[in-house]
């Protein structure tokens, strides 16, 4: 359980967290939303014991500042911005595995699921990897750790739809854990969580339960028929892994359940040329079977 009591954090004269009190129970999966400067990252850093502050932060009854190794041993963290580390990716993975008491093989497996070949990037400086590769590696390190609390700050910001689907699958496999997923936009994470907390100027302005209606591992089969072929649309839809018949009018592909709002948002830009659209939930058992097949 994570308890924040009367948390106040001030930078110079700006009060970024303003008497914030919050209790996060085990198994809560929280979408932490709010605009820039709302205090999301500051709150996360307080939970990680990285900031000194007024008030109390307790994780399973322990202060993360005073009991760093015990508390942080339970937490897996993915930052919003990948750090500019010069060390080879392999060294980072080995360091993380050592201090987390996890193993490199597990991290390698998760990275492979995300489409990142750890062997290929092992010797390359982390700094020189592409934005997507860095993000995948950080997610693999976090997911390779048997943590009870996952703190993810905009985890899918640099990922393509296919990799995002894998992240959703990975999170779906850990639905019994506590999660704090920070995002600017609720629709990015709404279908993964069971609670939404919105911060504004360092205060909780919304704390609501979310109906767990959608299985995060769910996939939707989609077919789109256009009025006429369109180059910009073809480029955009190809990024989602869609393929077209030769005429460029009919496009078929699949969309991750938690990604549906983002997908529809993209599609809205081309609504003028869409003649027909079908989104159909695939059978859950089939999805799980397919997922198991991919893992194998």
């Amino acid at each position: 359980m994570i308890e924040l009591r009367h948390l106040v954090k001030t930078f110079r004269r700006t009060r970024v967290l303003d008497d914030l009190s919050l209790t996060i129970a085990d198994g809560d999966r929280i979408a932490l939303i709010g605009s820039n400067g709302a205090g999301k990252t500051t709150m996360i850093r307080c939970i990680l014991g990285e900031y000194v502050h007024e008030g109390t932060v307790l994780i399973d009854g322990l202060s993360p500042r005073d009991h760093r190794t015990r508390v942080l041993g339970k937490i897996a963290f993915v930052p919003q911005m990948p750090p500019p580390l010069r060390m080879p990716a392999g060294d980072l993975v080995e360091f993380a595995a050592r201090v987390h008491d996890s193993d490199v093989a597990t991290i390698r497996q998760v990275a492979a699921r995300l489409g990142l070949d750890l062997e290929e990037v092992r010797r390359r400086p982390f700094l020189k990897l592409s934005g997507g590769q860095k993000q995948k590696l950080l997610i693999a390190i976090a997911m390779g750790h048997d943590a009870s609390i996952f703190i993810l700050d905009e985890p899918t910001a640099n990922l393509d739809p296919a990799a995002r689907q894998i992240v959703f699958d990975l999170l779906a496999e850990r639905l019994d854990r506590t999660m704090i997923i920070s995002s600017h936009r609720l629709e990015e994470v709404a279908l993964l969580v069971n609670r939404v907390i919105e911060l504004d100027r360092g205060r909780v302005v919304l704390d609501d339960k979310v109906e767990e209606a959608v299985d995060p591992s769910l996939r939707l089969d989609c077919e789109i028929v256009l009025r006429r072929p369109d180059e910009a649309f073809a480029k955009a839809i190809a990024e989602w892994g869609f393929a077209s018949a030769e005429d460029g009018l009919t496009w078929r592909g699949e969309v991750a359940g938690p990604d549906r709002l983002r997908f529809l948002g993209m599609l809205a830009r081309y609504s003028g040329i869409v003649r027909a659209l079908e989104l159909k939930e695939r059978d859950a058992a089939a999805c799980k079977e397919e997922q198991a097949h991919v893992q194998a």
Partner: peptide, 15 residues
């Protein structure tokens, strides 16, 4: 400044 501390100090290592 670049966020290295934010990430590296999120690992369970004593200060």
């Amino acid at each position: 400044e670049a966020g290295v501390y934010e990430y590296m100090l999120s690992f369970p290592i004593s200060l």
